Amino acid sequence: MRSWLLCISAGVLAGVSNAACTNKCGSNKCLGAIAADPAFGESFCSSWLALEPATTTVTEVETVTSTLLNVETALTTLTVTTATFTVTGSERSTIYQKRAPTITEADPALPDPTDVIASQCSSNEDRISKACSCILSTATASTVTVLETAVTTAVVEAESTVVETVTDNVVATVSVAAPAVTIPANIIVNGGFEDYLDTGNILPWTDTKDSTGGRFDVVNGVNPCMTGGSYCAGGRVVVRPYPPTTGSKYIAIRETFVGRPSTTYAFSFLYRCLNYDAGTSIDILYKGSVIGSVNQCYNSAAFYRPTGITFTTDATGQGEVEVRFRNSGATPYLYFYADDFKAIAV
Score class of each variant (00 low, 15 high):
residue 4 W to S: 15
residue 4 W to N: 12
residue 15 G to W: 05
residue 16 V to Y: 12
residue 21 C to S: 08
residue 21 C to R: 05
residue 24 K to R: 09
residue 28 N to S: 04
residue 31 L to N: 05
residue 32 G to D: 13
residue 41 G to I: 04
residue 41 G to H: 03
residue 43 S to N: 12
residue 43 S to G: 11
residue 43 S to F: 07
residue 44 F to V: 05
residue 45 C to Q: 04
residue 47 S to K: 15
residue 48 W to L: 14
residue 58 V to M: 15
residue 58 V to S: 06
residue 58 V to W: 13
residue 61 V to N: 12
residue 68 L to G: 09
residue 71 V to I: 08
residue 72 E to W: 15
residue 73 T to V: 10
residue 73 T to M: 12
residue 75 L to Y: 05
residue 80 V to A: 15
residue 81 T to E: 15
residue 81 T to Y: 15
residue 84 T to W: 11
residue 88 T to Y: 11
residue 95 I to Q: 09
residue 95 I to H: 07
residue 101 P to D: 14
residue 102 T to Q: 06
residue 106 A to P: 05
residue 106 A to H: 00
residue 107 D to M: 12
residue 110 L to H: 06
residue 112 D to T: 04
residue 115 D to F: 12
residue 119 S to A: 06
residue 120 Q to C: 13
residue 121 C to S: 08
residue 123 S to D: 05
residue 125 E to T: 14
residue 126 D to Y: 10
residue 131 A to K: 08
residue 138 T to E: 09
residue 139 A to F: 08
residue 142 S to N: 06
residue 144 V to M: 14
residue 144 V to G: 07
residue 146 V to Q: 14
residue 150 A to Y: 14
residue 150 A to M: 14
residue 155 V to T: 07
residue 159 E to Y: 08
residue 160 S to H: 07
residue 163 V to A: 10
residue 168 D to N: 09
residue 169 N to F: 09
residue 169 N to T: 13
residue 170 V to R: 15
residue 171 V to A: 11
residue 171 V to R: 14
residue 172 A to V: 12
residue 173 T to W: 03
residue 175 S to T: 12
residue 176 V to D: 07
residue 179 P to N: 10
residue 181 V to R: 07
residue 181 V to K: 11
residue 181 V to Y: 06
residue 182 T to C: 01
residue 182 T to S: 07
residue 186 N to D: 14
residue 189 V to C: 04
residue 193 F to D: 02
residue 194 E to F: 05
residue 196 Y to V: 10
residue 205 W to N: 09
residue 211 S to K: 15
residue 211 S to P: 04
residue 219 V to N: 06
residue 220 N to L: 03
residue 221 G to H: 02
residue 222 V to I: 11
residue 226 M to A: 04
residue 227 T to C: 01
residue 227 T to D: 04
residue 227 T to H: 02
residue 229 G to L: 03
residue 232 C to Y: 01
residue 233 A to L: 01
residue 235 G to Y: 02
residue 235 G to L: 00
residue 237 V to I: 10
residue 239 V to M: 11
residue 241 P to K: 09
residue 244 P to K: 10
residue 247 G to L: 10
residue 247 G to H: 08
residue 248 S to R: 13
residue 249 K to L: 07
residue 249 K to F: 02
residue 249 K to A: 07
residue 251 I to T: 15
residue 255 E to K: 03
residue 255 E to V: 08
residue 256 T to I: 08
residue 256 T to M: 08
residue 258 V to C: 01
residue 259 G to A: 08
residue 261 P to H: 00
residue 262 S to W: 00
residue 264 T to I: 00
residue 266 A to V: 05
residue 268 S to Y: 03
residue 268 S to K: 02
residue 271 Y to P: 06
residue 273 C to L: 11
residue 273 C to G: 01
residue 278 A to R: 01
residue 285 L to I: 01
residue 285 L to C: 04
residue 288 G to H: 02
residue 289 S to R: 13
residue 290 V to Y: 01
residue 293 S to L: 00
residue 296 Q to E: 07
residue 300 S to A: 04
residue 303 F to W: 05
residue 308 G to P: 01
residue 310 T to K: 00
residue 312 T to H: 00
residue 316 T to K: 00
residue 321 V to H: 02
residue 321 V to Y: 00
residue 323 V to Q: 03
residue 329 G to M: 04
residue 329 G to P: 00
residue 331 T to C: 07
residue 331 T to A: 10
residue 332 P to Q: 14
residue 333 Y to L: 10
residue 334 L to A: 05
residue 334 L to R: 08
residue 338 A to Y: 04
residue 340 D to W: 02
residue 341 F to E: 03
residue 343 A to V: 00
residue 343 A to S: 00
residue 344 I to R: 02
